[in-house]
Design a protein around this nucleic acid. Sequence first.
DNA 1: ATTACTAAGCAGCGAGTAA
DNA 2: TTTACTCGCTGCTTAGTAA
Lengths: 221, 221
Amino acid sequence: MKPYLLQMLKEIALLGGVRNTIEVSSVELADQLNTSQQTASRYLLELDKKEFIHREFGIKKQRITITDNGLHALEDEYSQYKQIFDLESKVCFKGVAVSGMGEGKYYTNQPGYIQQFQQLLQFTPHPGTFNVEITPIERNKLRLLKNVGGLEIEEFTTKNRTFGSVLCFPASVNGVKGAIVLPRRSHYSTIIEVISPHYLRERLAIKDGDPVEVMVFLKKK
Amino acid sequence: MKPYLLQMLKEIALLGGVRNTIEVSSVELADQLNTSQQTASRYLLELDKKEFIHREFGIKKQRITITDNGLHALEDEYSQYKQIFDLESKVCFKGVAVSGMGEGKYYTNQPGYIQQFQQLLQFTPHPGTFNVEITPIERNKLRLLKNVGGLEIEEFTTKNRTFGSVLCFPASVNGVKGAIVLPRRSHYSTIIEVISPHYLRERLAIKDGDPVEVMVFLKKK
DNA sequence: ATTACTAAGCAGCGAGTAA
DNA sequence: TTTACTCGCTGCTTAGTAA
């Protein structure tokens, strides 16, 4: 939807056009939008044609109601703004399921990690990680997470080697509880690793390439 | 602010550009907005020039942060959407204070009205009404109020005459408690009449022509 | 009063390209 | 790789005006 049409739809909504009929002339709407009567009229024609509003003509002014279609458009926009101002409490990643190379299983079987997961997350992770590939542009949100800070999993040493520290955030994958795991060392990649008390791949009935939504929860300040 | 610039600002915010720096190229932003690299670049120049964002250039990509200015623009937009979806619980009118012709005092001194006000609103109105002139376009919101319904003040008869029924809504004027009064008979005018336990004109230190904000509260369903 | 057409002008778009 | 310039073209805007 063209941004200028959405703007007009918003204006109609603010005047009470949601589940209610308003009576306005194209001149009045033009004034509200700081534009000409002709442009307001054209916008109304476009909104009508695209079924975002319904119009009836009287002898003067016109009666306008926002359709379900139009209401959905407004709701979508609203939810984006809610997300922006909610970004300090939760961050949403959209991606697709991918297979790792089994290293996830190796790490999540280390007692040194398992104990800390149990303590900080109050669950025992199912062996292995569930990997989600995100678009490069969403890596910016990973940076955001590191800036805000999360649960610190400390490094530890076994007789064989050292396991590095990890930053961890409670999360959900398509609504199922878990946590995401960001190794401190590695640079931001386009793969998010998720651990969960459940075997996510089975629980969500997901195979490689399926779209998934990862919601990451930040600790409130 | 041009709607298409706001759209881009919103996109930057969704990527985490609020109180945080993101690294994106103009091509990536163009992809997000379904437009060309050139257009994305131009938008960034405009947003920068108008101080909605701050930019730094690295060897690749650019580091972008939303300025306070930009954040305000987003907050304004957000609050408008909040208002739309809150319209079923409260409606806001902006107008200016005007003087009536004293009839307000006559009506608000009628015991038949006073008793009902006390019962439905839990306060005794200060004699007289506080009148607010709204723009003709906002009369649509009055229609909305009548559709939703409010507190019914019933008509009554004295030995001299009949006083008509009135629709009434709890409200506040610049934050001070009161109620608006819509005579059932009269057609929508551009004057809102407000009653209040306080002498609003004095309490708010307001004279004719001063801008006021009337917030009307609807009963929840 | 109203809506909305036509026509002309101008702003925004993006291909090509420089740095 | 980047960003952002020029410039031709498209499409949005608005004055004038009909209905």
